[in-house]
Amino acid sequence: MIELGQADPRVVVLGADLSDSTRALWFKEKFPDRFFSFGIAEQNMLGAAGGLSLAGKIPFVCTYGVFLSGRAWDQIRTTICYSNLNVKMGGAHGGISVGPDGATHQALEDCALIRVLPNMTLVVPCDYYETKKATIAVGKMFGPAYVRFGREKTPVITAPDTPFELGKAAVFREGSDISLIANGYMVSQCLLAADELAKEGISARVINLHTLKPLDREAIVKAAQETGAIVTAEEHQLIGGLGAAVAEVVAEECPVPMAMIGIRDQFGESGSPEELLKLHGLTAGNVAQTARKLLARKKGR
């Protein structure tokens, strides 16, 4: 954010009383005139972001994803997306790994709510470096964009020079027997699962589908055609999330056996991130096991 702020004076940041937690205060220290506190009032904050963009600013709005996508959805839909306004949203605390704060604060539906909106760009980066690249990339494009952040320290699996392109899925590991498609934290788990599967002689392709919208349909079709089976993994409800998005493409263009890992139509609860990830089957071991079962199904066809 600070790099963007330095490069472009039009960038302003808006916060809703969680700016310490979302680290937006770092921007405020650097550019006090260009940071606006909106209090605990998300609807107005998103409306005002729309107004700022209409007067030529590039507003970045940052708060927890549950409140951003839930409380202000109408403003995001009707004010921002319908008029294709240049507003950037940072939805923090995405996923079950938010942990102890419990179900009220764990954004598990945000991608579904945001993905359904025309004109929107939706990115779920996999680690620190990708988050930085995604933030800079959405700042440079025109139109509404939403970047989903996790809370917990996430394993760093990319480097500062790893290529990143909005709307373009990244193949992190080549493979021919099965494809593991994930975003966010689950990309790291799929890489670990692929290591495990390799020991058994299974060649798994790992695809980082960081941009949920616009969706890289080509990469999905290619994975279906070349590997014949797809496991998806996400820290989000299966309904309306990454798995559903991939399934929409696969069903329409190239049906192959699929299995999905994610939250199964339920709310979270308090607990440590590790406990919750395990409880909901969001580990490398679960990905590997699901892949094995799916491969058996693929062979049985």
């Binding site: 729309g50 107004g51 700022l52 600013k57 004010t79």
Partner: peptide, 25 residues
């Protein structure tokens, strides 16, 4: 037309953003 409207309750917030930008500039 300076701002899209129709979903009630949204216009004043949009105007707040426009006025803030005017002051900043």
């Amino acid at each position: 037309v300076d701002a899209t409207s129709g979903s009630l309750g949204n216009g004043l917030g949009i105007a707040v953003g426009m006025a803030l930008a005017g002051r900043l500039d």
